[in-house]
């Protein structure tokens, strides 16, 4: 099976000389289609840095990243934007959504960037909201949604373009236990039903309980990679 994500000898160093910090050290990692994996580790272990590399948001100091078979090193900013638009979905810790757009418009926005026609955009966005349990909240702006609802919209937006992989960085960090559990359950259901690949950066044990694969980072290295 061809991996969705393939990292080879990935290192990332911030700063120069004596003040430099090595966030990733020779990381080799493959994410397979259908994975529902957590990227765990203490603060400063390199979770976010690795997610940024996989998400084509940042470039490694050395090493290679390939998404769906496409190497990222040779791509310019525009090509990387295109790759993110079509192959990667993101859910961040907070402030995910565009505040001046409604829930439905936030989701439609991705489809508009892809050049989809208006009618298709609206239908798919409504369907996506229904799928994450937010039917009837299409016209609410983010400020009128709870934190959990906002994260659900972010999940719906991440999935709307049927990406090869969804990357979530601390998606439950700002949520209460019940809402966090609901969000994880939602992502798990989508993984089970649609086979969507998820990589979730977290140190939340509630999240780790639900995942099928657990990747542990320590000091920029993969300390443990287990499947359940």
């Amino acid at each position: 099976m061809q991996p969705i994500v393939s990292c080879r000898g990935l290192t990332k160093t911030y700063g120069k000389g004596a003040l430099s910090v090595q966030a990733l050290r020779e990381v080799d990692l493959e994410i397979l289609p259908g994975d529902f994996a957590t990227l765990a580790g203490p603060s400063g272990s390199g979770k976010t840095t690795l997610l940024n590399m996989i998400g084509a948001l940042d470039k490694p100091t050395t090493g290679e990243v390939a998404i769906d078979g496409q190497a990222l090193q040779s791509l310019n900013a525009t090509a990387l934007s295109d790759l993110r638009l079509h192959k990667i979905g993101f859910v961040f810790q907070s402030l995910n959504l565009i505040p001046v757009l409604s829930a439905q418009e936030n989701i439609e926005f991705v489809l508009e960037l892809q050049g989809r026609p208006s009618k298709e955009r609206a239908e798919r966005a409504r369907e996506a909201l229904k799928n994450v349990g937010l039917e009837g909240m299409e016209h609410r702006r983010p400020a009128a949604l709870s934190g959990g609802q906002q994260q659900r919209v972010a999940v719906a937006r991440a999935l709307i373009s049927n990406p090869a992989i969804v990357l979530a960085d601390e998606p439950t960090a700002n949520l209460d236990s019940k809402t966090a559990l609901e969000l994880i359950s939602l992502m798990y259901r989508l993984n089970q039903e649609n086979g969507t690949t998820f990589v979730i950066g977290t140190h939340d044990p509630r999240v780790m309980e639900h995942t099928k694969r657990h990747i542990e980072l320590l000091d920029g290295k993969i300390a443990n990679d287990t499947r359940r």
Binding site: S81, L85, H86, I98, F109, L113
Partner: peptide, 15 residues
Amino acid sequence: HEFGILLAIGMKPAQ
């Protein structure tokens, strides 16, 4: 920050 989110979801810098 918001522009960063827009870049992440695939909006091009020129857009």
